[in-house]
Amino acid sequence: MISTVLTVKSQYARSILINSVKLPLGWVFLSVICITMLGLIEQCQSDHTRSMSQNRKKRPSGNQSRRKPLGKADLLPHPASYVREQSLRWHVALAAFQTGKGNGDLLAKLVKALYLAWFLQQAGFGALDRDFYLDAERILDAAARGANKDVWRIDPADCSPITRLLDLHEQQLLCAPVFAVDEAESSLVRFGRSDKKSPW
């Protein structure tokens, strides 16, 4: 299923994935996850192609590292201005759902933040109880199911687990080096390619 979703390129087809009432339960949620990762996957494939081309010209010897040396920017966290911008987007997305004005793109932002927070926590950044992730996933899954009826809403009373995770993810981005965030993004891509329903 996921491999099929990843081949979807047009906005019209993406809309069908989100809104079709014929989708089995649970598919909408996974479709949103995969759609938001299309750009990441395509970028990874592009980087891989360039890397393979370079490797044909010069292959490292056995005692040379195959990993590109990390620069100063990779070893430092993202700038605070960037983190504030991302945090604002997440909270605006959540606020839109509270007023019944959500959409697929906003849902994708929240889902991506949820899973990146988990992968960064697995890398040692943050220590939030797993139940928060399960509750947030359940709430977002319900929001995705509601999209079948053109209802894009999350009850404000249900937002606490999501808000807690967004606050955690903001702190993660403020302290985790860029290379760790990039690795979390790569883990998200691998998850999207797998047949797992959730990363935990």
Rank of each mutant, 00 (worst) to 15 (best):
A147E: 07
D129C: 10
D195H: 13
D158C: 09
A180N: 03
I162P: 07
A147K: 02
F125E: 12
A142S: 07
Q171H: 15
S186D: 10
R138M: 09
E170N: 14
G146Y: 02
P161I: 02
R145P: 08
L174I: 06
L128Q: 12
R190Q: 13
R138L: 08
D135G: 08
L188H: 15
S186P: 00
Y115C: 11
A117M: 04
K196V: 05
E170P: 08
D150K: 11
L173T: 09
Y133S: 06
Y115P: 06
L174E: 13
Q171G: 15
A142V: 05
A142M: 07
P161K: 06
G146T: 03
Y115E: 12
A147N: 01
D129W: 00
Q171N: 15
Q172P: 08
G192P: 13
V178D: 07
Y133H: 03
P177Y: 00
A117L: 00
A123W: 04
R130L: 13
D131C: 08
S186L: 08
S194T: 15
L116S: 12
F119E: 09
E185A: 13
D131Q: 14
D129N: 11
A127I: 11
G192K: 10
R193A: 09
H169I: 00
V181E: 15
D141I: 00
S186W: 09
E183L: 12
A184G: 14
I162L: 12
P161M: 07
